[in-house]
């Protein structure tokens, strides 16, 4: 007779799903079964797992199915598939403003709009393909053209990338875009001033979009992803070290904005951060820092920033 090694409740619990699916090696199966013989708690767990894995799938009825398909068709009016990953956070990040649409969802009788939605979608897809544009970086404002207060701000928000949300999305009559806002990347020849950067943080569309959607509970989840988005978008050796410096100084910062431009005649790297208030949207803040760019071959160590600005988003200003 061979004695099977005793296993803990925790280990037994871990192995129940593979046991029911027949994925365990014979020795492991014997160990688990040995434990189950003397453990009513784990035997109960096994019964639950068997019920879960063995139960038939619940089906939708015809009405539910019709409502679901109509809701999806309606939602697809706002969706244009794009190839740039960093304007689209992962599924677990996105639904917050999708939820706004979700509240409009699946109305009885929504089928009436399905045919129209289909036509609009095809027209939108054609317009999108005709525009030849993919979004390079952007907020949920679709690039923000026409929303910033000055030519500089428009240039900052648009960048020199020609970045625009797909035209079909911009022109839809009730087109609140469903994308969660992502960091805006601006590359190139943009002329910057400290005043412009402060105004950008205080009233610019990107920061306002962040303030509408994100809160302090999002920071840990999104910080790494948005950092990588900026790194991909700007591709500058100083970016990573300077992001680390800024986030190290203010850990609750969420990267929202990155730019390469010129300030006072000097090439600079600018990073903007959304800092969610712990007491609600009224105290959301921004922080913008900028660093002088060095020549090629210089060590990629982040220097002290040349300057910074910050304050509440939406009102007030501070240096």
């Amino acid at each position: 007779m061979t004695l099977q090694p005793a296993i803990s409740h925790e280990r037994c619990s871990e192995l129940l799903v593979p046991l029911v699916r027949g994925d365990l090696a014979p020795a492991e199966t014997a160990s688990v079964e040995g434990h189950l013989e003397g453990c009513t708690g784990c035997a109960g767990e096994l019964a639950a797992v068997r019920s879960l894995l063995g139960a038939p799938v619940e089906a939708m009825d015809d009405l539910e199915r019709a409502r679901l398909r109509a809701g999806i068709a309606g939602g697809l009016r706002h969706e244009v598939p794009v190839a740039d990953p960093y304007v689209h956070p992962d599924p677990d990040d996105a639904p917050r403003n999708l939820r706004r649409a979700s509240r409009r969802r699946i109305q009885p009788g929504a089928w009436l709009g399905v045919a129209a939605a289909t036509l609009i979608l095809f027209a939108g897809a054609l317009a999108y393909l005709g525009s030849g544009g993919l979004v390079v970086g952007g907020s949920d404002q679709g690039g923000g053209a026409g929303t910033a207060g000055s030519a500089e701000e428009r240039a900052l928000e648009d960048g020199d990338t020609g970045s625009r949300a797909p035209r079909a999305m911009d022109e839809a009559p009730d087109s609140r875009p469903l994308r969660a806002p992502a960091p805006l990347v601006v590359r190139g020849r943009t002329e910057l001033t400290e005043k412009t950067l402060t105004r950008l943080g205080r009233t610019g569309p990107t920061f306002r979009a962040f303030a509408r959607v994100y809160g302090s509970d999002d920071v840990g989840r999104l910080q790494g992803r948005f950092t990588r988005a900026l790194e991909r978008g700007l591709d500058n050796a100083l970016l990573g070290p300077c992001l680390n410096q800024a986030i190290g100084a203010q850990p609750e910062s969420l990267p929202a904005y990155g730019a390469l431009g010129t300030l006072d005649g000097r090439r600079v790297l600018v990073l903007g951060f959304f800092i969610p208030g712990s007491q609600g949207p009224a105290v959301h803040r921004f922080s913008v820092r900028w660093w002088g760019l060095r020549g090629p071959g210089e060590p990629a160590r982040c220097p002290q920033p040349l300057g910074s600005s910050g304050g509440p988003i939406g009102a007030g200003e501070s240096r």
């Binding site: 939602g75 599924p91 996105a94």
Partner: peptide, 12 residues
């Protein structure tokens, strides 16, 4: 519904 709309958005 959310699942499919997210999938549509993130298809790429």
């Amino acid at each position: 519904q959310d699942t499919f709309l997210i999938a549509a958005r993130r298809a790429s």
